Amino acid sequence: MVGSTDIYAEDFSAGVDFLGSQAYVDKERIGAVGICGSGGFALSAAAMDSRIKAIATSVMYDISSMGNDMTGEARFEMLDQLSQQRWTDFENGKPAFQPTFPEKPVDQIPEGLDPVSEEFFTFYGMDRGWHPNAFGNVTSTSMLSLMNFPSLAHINEIAPRPILFIVGENAHSTHFSETAYDNAAEPKEIYVVPDVNHVDLYDQVDKIPFDKLESFFTEKM
Rank of each mutant, 00 (worst) to 15 (best):
W87E: 15
D107H: 11
A46S: 03
N197I: 10
V205C: 15
E119A: 01
A96Y: 11
K94M: 11
T174V: 15
H131K: 10
F176D: 05
K220T: 12
A56L: 06
E10F: 05
A45S: 07
S83P: 07
Y124K: 08
D200T: 08
M1C: 11
A171T: 03
F216W: 05
A96N: 12
Q85M: 13
A134L: 14
A42L: 08
K104M: 09
F176G: 02
E214H: 13
V192N: 07
Y181I: 03
A74D: 14
S142I: 00
I190Y: 01
T141Q: 06
L19M: 09
L144I: 05
L213E: 04
Q98A: 15
S140Y: 14
A56W: 03
M66D: 10
A42E: 05
F123M: 09
M48S: 15
P105F: 05
F123S: 08
I30H: 03
K53A: 06
K220R: 11
R86V: 15
G20Q: 04
M1V: 10
E119I: 02
F76C: 14
S13G: 05
T139G: 08
W130Y: 10
S50M: 07
M60I: 13
I55P: 00
L113Q: 01
I109S: 05
L144D: 02
L146D: 02
M143F: 08
E91I: 13
G20M: 02
P95S: 06
A46I: 03
L164M: 08
Q81H: 14
D211T: 05
D6C: 08
Y202R: 05
